[in-house]
Structure formats: C-alpha cells, structure tokens
Simulated scan of single mutants.
Amino acid sequence: MTAPEARNVPALLLGLREEGFSGTVRVSGHPGGTIHLRNGLVGAVETPGAPTVTSALLTSGRIGDEDWLAACAAEPDADRLGGHLVAAGLIGAAEREVVCAAAVFDGAFAMALSPPGSWELSDREPALLAEPGVEPRQLTEETSRRMALLARSGGAPSELTRVRPAAVASSGPRRPGGLARRHQDVLDHVNGRRTPRDIAFALGRGLYAVLLDLIRLEALNLVRWDVKAAPDSRPSTAPRAAGADSPAAAAAPKVVPLPKRRPGGGFPGHDGGLRGG
C-alpha cells in the first residue's frame, strides 16, 4: 500500500489492515491527528480535537501525576506502558481497555468534524494503545453513527462543537432532583465561554459524550445554545494536554509536526471521510 493508491483515509486503513501494517498515519487539517496502527488494527488516535488517553487518566484523577511520572520512568516505551500501569496496580485491566478504546473512537470522531487535509505514512511511534486494537471498518461505522445521531439530535456536529453554551438562570438550586452526576459535572463547566471541546478537556472526558450530555441538558432547559456559531468567535482556548503546567503532561506522548504531505482523503463528515466511500 502506497500513499497515492488509497482515495481516502478509510480506504487506506482498510488496505493497511489487509497488509497487517504497523506504523503511523498522520492526517493534516484542523484539527488533524495521528493514527497509530499495530498489525493493521487502530491502537490509538491522537488529535488536538479531543482528550487523549493520557488526558483522560490524569485530568479525571484516575492516576495521580507522581504515579504517572514514575510509571513513565519505569516503562519509557509507551506501547508497553498500559501493561505496566495494570501490573503496578494503578488501573484495572478492564478499565484501561475501556479508556483506551474510548479514546480511539472519540479521536476519530473529533477528526471527522473538519475538512481533512493530506496524509502521510511513517514508521511505528510508541503510543498508549488499545489492545489488540479496533478494526478500521468498525471505526468508520461507529463514527458515521455518531455523526448521524448528533445531526438528528442537535444540529450539524461541526457547528455544535464551536458554540459556547450558557446556563439557563434559575431561582432554585442549580442541580435539579434526579440529575445524573455526569450531567451535573458538565453543567458546572457551562459558563457561556467554553465550547464543548473546552469542557471535554477540562473534565478529561470524550468530546462526543460531552456533546450528548449538553444536548440532554438543553432538553431539560438547563442550558441554551445557538448552533450557528458566530464566524468571528474566538477559538477554543482549552489546554490540549492534561494539565499544561503539570510535569506529568511532559511525559505524555506527543504528536510530532506533519512531515512532507501527499494528497489524500480524510475522516467522516466530508468528502472521502471516515463515513466510508
């Protein structure tokens, strides 16, 4: 499989699956991202558009900064870091797999929200992986399902991620009876200035899950938003890694700059995207 042979990223990933490719696919664009494959399966998707596994573990408090730094020092190869975290008792095997797999699907979803640029194949880079990985076809189908569900429920997904929802004023207590904790956590971060992406990074939760919770909160008349974001709105200012000032963030795997580009396609929601095609 060479770069020009595939018409888009989904087709590329299917071809790489057939070849059992282990390596990296970098996709340019806004936000763009890096797809890590092992034996043709998608083990990780890292993008500035959604929290990574590292962010999910540290921001949520599942693993403390000191424990994380010690684990990275003991196992510097990120491919094996997940197993070390389990062996050290810092996270359960099942929870680790859930977090890693969720980040793969959420990263692909975030990359689907904007027109893609080009893509480039490169050698394997260490990453905190879902094991054994996600089938490319399953990733494409799930991304398509999420895009379609959001479009039916709240509007164009790409527009939903750019708005800044505000809390609806109420004379009573802010938490209505029966409101789930996850919804309350999102509501506590709604201030009319944060985008859904900002809230996702602040909570260390998936962007897609936060969007669903905001739609639910709007249905309960607890938040309001206008899906037509102002074109001159300031860009999101959320940190793109767990705790920008945290020493643990420095130990997290980084996405390196895009090398020489080659023409290609992108993710779902646009021509040649991960919705198939």
Rank of each mutant, 00 (worst) to 15 (best):
G20A: 12
K228G: 06
S22E: 11
P235D: 13
L207D: 03
G177N: 11
V210N: 02
L41S: 06
A108I: 10
S28H: 10
L222S: 08
P157K: 08
V256T: 15
L160R: 07
G177I: 04
P132I: 00
D226I: 09
A167H: 00
S233D: 15
S153D: 10
L14I: 02
V186N: 02
L203F: 03
A88L: 07
T47M: 09
G265Y: 06
A112T: 04
A169L: 06
S171Q: 13
L128K: 02
G32P: 12
S153Q: 15
S122Y: 01
M111S: 04
A50M: 00
P176A: 04
S60I: 01
R182F: 03
G155L: 04
W119R: 06
E95N: 11
L212M: 09
G264A: 12
A151S: 13
N39H: 05
A238T: 11
R38I: 03
T143D: 04
G178K: 07
N8W: 05
G33E: 10
G177T: 11
G178L: 08
E131D: 00
V256S: 14
G40S: 08
P116V: 11
P115F: 12
R137K: 01
P235A: 12
A50V: 01
V104M: 03
L203E: 03
T143L: 00
D65R: 12
L258E: 11
L212P: 01
G40R: 03
P76H: 10
S171W: 14
V223S: 10
G117T: 09
G177P: 08
R146T: 01
D79V: 04
A108F: 07
V45L: 05
A50Q: 01
F201N: 00
S144F: 08
D79Y: 02
G49N: 05
A156W: 07
W225D: 09
G117W: 02
L212K: 11
A230D: 14
R175Q: 12
D198L: 02
L212H: 03
S236W: 05
G40H: 05
R224W: 05
L13R: 05
G82R: 07
A238D: 09
A209W: 04
H183A: 13
G33T: 10
L187C: 05
A169P: 01
G243I: 06
V27C: 15
A70T: 13
R38S: 11
G273L: 09
V163Q: 03
F109A: 06
